[in-house]
């Protein structure tokens, strides 16, 4: 057997060059720049800068508002990830059983995917608005004085609901195709062994969905961390005030609104490390625990 290969050792490098160039210019160079900026305090126009060592980082750890945002981010990401995965799984299991009108039903569940996050934010504003939102009127009947943009909890509630709603279709599509790839024979065998539908689900279907579920878990964590920015931005109407915010939104506030390049670079570096850790965790898990068949 002859192994296919390149005779010239520079040829593969040449083929890789366009891709490598793009990665270096658009990823490594800006990332290196951010790391450097995080050790300086810089005039926004680029006229002067002072080296401050790790002061930009220590300042963050001392800052009550940064820790508050970090804490909110943890809760927000956990809630959004858990709820959007759990609800999507439920919907997918139910949709998998539908026989008549299956396509219409599934399409209806998927169309939200086309809504961009800022638009989702606007829809949230319309639904939950503190003076004329229909949901505000609805919950008022139960004695809940709902005030978006005023009450911290109410605003957080709206942000979680809109973020989950926006993410459901993606999870739904993946779970549904995951379900449909489980071989018929396995299901039939399970049917003989166990009469309880719930039992069959937890013992057979759920473990077989694990690869899909794990992949979605990572996707959802990064979604909740980064892609929900548009929802936050539209909900705040340009004034963050005392509203809950994620770390990504804080990077934007300090960097783009406040022109504090050093401080927001330090925050970006922290996020980069977080993503790196998440990626390492993902690959480790893939290698060890999760078996894609």
């Amino acid at each position: 057997m002859k192994r296919a290969g390149f005779s010239d050792r520079w040829l593969p490098v040449l083929f890789l060059l366009p891709q490598l160039t793009i990665i270096v210019i658009f990823f490594y160079w800006p990332a290196a720049h951010a790391v450097r900026s995080s050790f300086f305090l810089q005039d926004p126009f680029g006229f002067g800068e002072t080296f401050v060592g790790i002061k930009n980082y220590t300042m963050l750890l001392d800052s009550a508002s940064y820790l508050r945002a970090a804490w909110f981010t943890v809760i927000f990401v956990t809630l959004v990830t858990f709820l959007s995965l759990a609800i999507a799984l439920l919907l997918a299991v139910k949709a998998d059983k539908v026989i008549r009108g299956a396509k219409t039903y599934r399409t209806l569940l998927m169309w939200v995917y086309a809504v961009a996050p800022p638009v989702a934010g606007v829809i949230g504003l319309v639904l939950f608005d503190q003076s004329w939102g229909p949901i505000k009127d609805f919950v008022a009947q139960f004695g809940w004085d709902f005030r978006l943009g005023v009450n911290y909890f109410d605003t957080a509630f709206t942000l979680v609901v809109m973020s989950v709603w926006k993410q459901l279709p993606v999870n739904f599509i993946f779970f549904l195709s995951g379900l449909q790839s489980i071989p018929r024979s396995v299901r039939e065998a399970a049917l003989i062994d166990n009469r309880s539908a719930a039992g069959r689900f937890w013992d057979v279907t759920f473990p077989l969905l694990a690869p899909t579920g794990f992949f979605l878990l990572i996707i959802n964590i990064t979604y909740a961390l980064f892609d929900t920015f548009g929802i936050f931005d539209t909900t705040f109407k340009g004034e963050p005030g005392n509203n809950p915010m994620t770390l990504v939104y804080k990077v934007y506030l300090d960097g783009f609104r406040g022109n504090d390049l050093g401080g927001s670079s330090a925050q970006s570096v922290i996020l980069m490390v977080l993503v790196l850790a998440l990626t390492i965790f993902q690959f480790r898990m893939v290698e060890r625990r999760i078996h894609y068949t």
Binding site: Q130, S131, R147, G149, V150, F236, K237, E239, P240, N243
Partner: peptide, 15 residues
């Protein structure tokens, strides 16, 4: 007080 947004505080006056 209707939050930090300008318009949300102006609207009740207009109404």
């Amino acid at each position: 007080w209707y939050g930090a947004s300008w318009d949300d505080n102006q609207a009740p006056f207009e109404e």
